[in-house]
């Protein structure tokens, strides 16, 4: 008799574990399935939007390539998306419907806002930001995306310089000039770095090129383009340099300015600027502490390991780590 009760109890527990709404295995599986479907649809929509912007045709082949999906599955996906009124297909050509475009722009918006968040607030290395945002963009609801935008203070560009679509789905068109077409010895501000393909992007990052940096092309040969920002000089292959877009810049950085991290101990200096690539929480904190351009600053103490160092600003002593001090440009006071 007791065995029967045990069997019933176990059956009940197994049944609950499988079937409970929300926490049961079955409900979990369905949730996972719907999430996977959303990820696929959104990736497909992004691919179509991308092609549209490049002025190229999207086809089932290009879609199956972009999503690395077998052709059969890609065709099924297209069918499901057509049924939902997101895309239209005419003889091997795929087009977004207005509904599909709206959704696609929203995904792009989530992606770029996430990139901004990860780069600025979480200080994740720029090379990892894209992949992480790619993963998280499918998990946000539109309300969460709007909240994220407000929290970040309505940024206009992602860390690579791409414009962030507005809540209404408006994408500002901004045209920089490829660095390869920019005149020699003319100051230019980097406005955009193409982050795909990832390998070329990593070369740009490794060379120290950042959005917001003011650079000049000092030499151009068919083999290489040489550019400088006043401190660092780098040579890039023309194919790589073409991924940098620039716009006219104001005055280049003063020649005698150095990063705060290189200011000798017990030396006074005046803050010239904060690195434009330094955004988000860290920048706000530094400004709140009174590290505004024009402020007097003095390197006062140093730990035996070189980082952090303590600086005297506006009568208080503030410790900064090396990577923070590197982002603050100062002009040493002449003795």
């Amino acid at each position: 008799m007791a065995e029967l009760w045990f069997v019933l109890l176990i059956l009940l527990l197994v049944g609950l574990g499988l079937l409970l709404p929300r926490v049961g295995l079955f409900a979990r599986y369905r949730l996972w399935r719907s999430w996977r479907e959303r990820e696929r649809i959104e990736d497909a929509l992004k691919h179509l939007l991308n092609r549209e912007h490049q002025g190229r045709r999207a086809s089932p082949e290009s879609l199956s390539g972009a999503l690395s999906l077998p052709r059969g599955q890609a065709l099924q996906l297209i069918e499901r998306m057509e049924a939902r009124g997101l895309i239209e297909s005419h003889d091997e050509q795929l087009r977004l419907t207005s509904e599909g475009r709206e959704w696609a722009v929203n995904v792009v918006r989530a992606h770029r806002l996430l990139e901004r968040y990860l780069a600025d607030e979480a200080r994740m290395p720029l090379a990892q930001v894209h992949d992480e945002a790619q993963r998280r963009e499918h998990l946000l609801t539109p309300e969460q995306v709007n909240a994220l935008e407000a929290e970040l203070g309505y940024p206009q560009h992602d860390p690579h310089g791409d414009p962030i679509p507005s809540r209404e789905g408006h994408i500002p068109r901004e045209q920089g000039t490829p660095l390869t077409d920019w005149p020699l010895n003319t100051p230019a501000r980097v406005v955009h770095l193409e982050d795909e393909p990832a390998l070329a992007y990593q070369q740009l990052l490794a060379a120290g090129v950042k959005v917001g940096q003011v650079v000049q092309v000092i030499e151009r040969t068919p083999q290489a383009i040489t550019l400088t920002d006043g401190t660092l000089t780098c040579r890039l292959a023309p194919a790589i340099a073409a991924n940098i877009s620039v716009a006219p810049a104001g005055a280049p950085k003063p020649a005698d300015a150095v990063p705060l991290s290189r200011l000798p101990l017990h030396q006074d200096a005046v803050i010239v600027a904060l690195d434009p690539a330094l955004q988000g929480l860290t920048r706000r904190r530094l400004l709140d502490l009174g590290l505004t351009p024009g402020t007097l600053i003095r390197a006062e103490m140093q730990t035996p390991f070189g980082s952090p160092r303590a600086y005297r600003v506006r009568g208080t002593l503030i410790a900064l780590r090396k990577h923070q001090a590197e982002a603050i440009l100062v002009k040493p006071a002449t003795l």
Partner: peptide, 14 residues
């Protein structure tokens, strides 16, 4: 905690 916000500040009061 990879995706959590982070910034370093340390004030050394008198």
């Amino acid at each position: 905690l990879r995706g959590e916000a982070s910034a370093f500040t340390l004030e050394l009061p008198p």
